[in-house]
Structure formats: C-alpha cells, structure tokens
Design a protein around this nucleic acid. Sequence first.
DNA 1: CCGAAATCTTGCGGACCCCGCACTTTTCCC
DNA 2: GGGAAAAGTGCGGGGTCCGCAAGATTTCGG
Lengths: 203, 203
Amino acid sequence: MEEPLGLRERKKLETRQALSWAALRLAVERGLENVLVEDIAASAGVSPRTFNNYFSSKAEAITSRHLDRGRELTEQVRRRPGTESVWESILEAALAQYSPNDRVPDPEWTAGVRLMTSEPTLIGEFLRASSVIERELAQAIAERTRTDVAVDLYPRLVAASVGAAIEVATDRWLTADPPIPLGPLVRDALTQVAAGLPEPSTH
Amino acid sequence: MEEPLGLRERKKLETRQALSWAALRLAVERGLENVLVEDIAASAGVSPRTFNNYFSSKAEAITSRHLDRGRELTEQVRRRPGTESVWESILEAALAQYSPNDRVPDPEWTAGVRLMTSEPTLIGEFLRASSVIERELAQAIAERTRTDVAVDLYPRLVAASVGAAIEVATDRWLTADPPIPLGPLVRDALTQVAAGLPEPSTH
DNA sequence: CCGAAATCTTGCGGACCCCGCACTTTTCCC
DNA sequence: GGGAAAAGTGCGGGGTCCGCAAGATTTCGG
C-alpha cells in the first residue's frame, strides 16, 4: 500500500512541506503583504526560483495545507464501511477530522483558516482548493453509490453540500464569541443539510 | 426607488461596464493570457492606470458580471411574495434567472461562465464572487425567516446549498454532450437538495 | 562501482501587474 | 461662473511569475 519512496521523492516532499509551512507561518506572524517569496524561500532553505517550481503563487503555497486536509477527509470517507449510509459516513469522517475525540482543534490550524478566510487574496485560492476537494469527494461518493459524476447530479450535490456545511460551521465557529466547540456545529450543519434544510419554526 | 443618477455616476458606471465587458470579450476571444490590462483599457477608451481604479485585478473585472447576475438573483428572491416557502421562492427566482421563459441562455453568458470555470486564474475569483453572493442571499433569507445570520446556521446553509446546486447544475449543463436544457437541471438540483439528498436507488 | 540519463535546483532576464503619488481634467453645486 | 470634490492620467517602483539554459544530484542499467 505504502510505497518505499526514494530519496528523491522524499526530499521533494520535504521541500514542499517546508515551503508551505514557512509561507503559512510567516503570513500569520506578520501579515501576508509583509511576506515576500524571497522570505519564504529563505526560510525553507531554497532559492526563490525554486519556490515557483513547487507553487505557482504565494496563495497556493499557503492553501496547500487546506487541500491536504480535505484530501484526508475524502480518504476517511472512503475507509468507512459500506454498510453505513452516505450521510453517516460523511458525518463520522467529518467529526473525526475536525474535532477528534472532542478535543479543541489545534491552534495552528485555527490561525491558518482564519488567515485564509480573511485575506482577500487568499479567499479565492482557499475556495478553489475546496472545490478541488469536492470533486474528489464527489468521485468517492459516486463509487460508493454506483452513480456517475459525469451524469448524475447526486454525488456532486452531496459533495458540494458537505463543503458548504463544513464551511458554514467553521466560519460560525471562528467568529463565535464566546467560543463554542466545533464538533457540535459540524454535526448540526450536516444534519440540517441531510434533512433538506426545513424552515426553522419562528420562535 | 430608482435614483436619478447624475452625470458623474452614470459615466462611472458606463466606464465600469465597458471595462468589465471588454475584459470578458477579449479573454473569450484570445484567451486570458493574451490579454493585457493595457488592451482592456484601450478597448474601453481609458488609460491603463484607470483600469486599476475600478478593478484590482483582471480576474475581478471579468468576474464582476457574474457578481452582478448573482445580486439580481438575490433581488428576485427578495421580491417573491412572503407567502411562498423559502424553497419555492428560490426555485422560481433561479428559474427566472437562469432559464427565462424556457429560452436558451444567451451565448455570451455561456462563453463567460465557461471561461471563468476553466481558466485556473479565474476560478478562484469566480468562487469568491459566489461566496459574496451567498452572503447577501443568506441575509435575505434570514430576514424572510426571522433568523440571524450571525447566530443561526440555517440561512447560510440554505444560501450555500443553493449556490452549490446552481453551480453543479450549470457545470453539468456546460459539459453536456449532446446539449440539454439548463432549466430542468436547476430544478432537479434544487429539488434534490431541498429533499435532503436521499441516496438514489441503484438501478 | 561507474557513467549516462533523468530530474531538480538555480541565476538571469524580462514581461507584466498593481499601487502610491502628484498632477490635470471634469463634474457638481451654490 | 467659480471654487470644491471627484475622476482620470502619467510616472515610478516593488513584486510576482515564468522561460531558458547551465550546473548539481539522484537514479539505474550494466
């Protein structure tokens, strides 16, 4: 299952991680506009030119971590037993991903998301990454339900709705004052979506 | 309701439209990377410097038409009678917007969407515009249902789901071969979402 | 173990983007 | 009509991103 991964590949991966990580860290520390590609490259120990061999923009470097996380979610969904309903699988995978053991999400991720959703330059790239994730998730759902992403709306609608639910839940969590836990928000959002978003009874 | 709009404002709007329109047209004609800000400005009859007084990037200029269209959708929803259910209002508004009188959408819009969803540089900006629209739509829904965008997940979930449904339907329509009409796709997508996306029976 | 082939890194140069600033032109409104 | 407010313009510069062509490193067959 896991490839040995030669020296070459390993180094490439390390460089990529180092660049992405450095970009995120520096941007959180001093604000995106005060970070030059030059700084990121220096922090990762490569030349500026090399930076652009890995990422085509600062934004992409920063959001690549978000992309990775999303891919893990899809993997989790794929690993769930086929006996569950699609919604069950997704809910469990999402909870495991965004609120493992009901613990508080790690502050480093929090800062990253906050940055990506507040800096105008990053928002677009962030959403683009999300849409890539949704495509992959849609594929996984299609396989599970024996539907076809190219023909049926179903798998893509589910993927897009899941993305929407997680995004809304996350955003609500980020802006909550006083703070509230993320897990229940994600559960609530997904449950509402799976129920067809009925109009709430006016209180 | 409608402000008279002085000469100043009118000219500003004209310039903005001219720039946005020129950007889209040129990009469709010869591909985004073969269009310089200089060209767009020239085509709209202003100086290159002025371009950036209106838009902070080429991408923003191109997607601004998408943003406008989305805002019209929100307006349509606002104008629907309060006696309808939220889903009814949205469905009717969306159909009116995307497939008026069951007529084929105008080819110029088609080309624009196709461009915005295929050029990597534009996708991010396109999605960013969509998210702005969703925020405004969420606000409209909140007012209609007496919920609070800052507290309740409901209005934002609906807005985001609607965005997802329309996006998936549009994408399916763009890639359909042979072509199929957009109206039914939008109806189908919104209906599935409003039903909670039940798993389709395997055929 | 070696040397050719494949791959990665790097520096250079250049086209382009975006913006701050100061200046000119146009529109507004009394 | 004339001064204030706002829009358009030209210039300059810091940055980004990429193509290209060496140079450095890893891989792999023999």
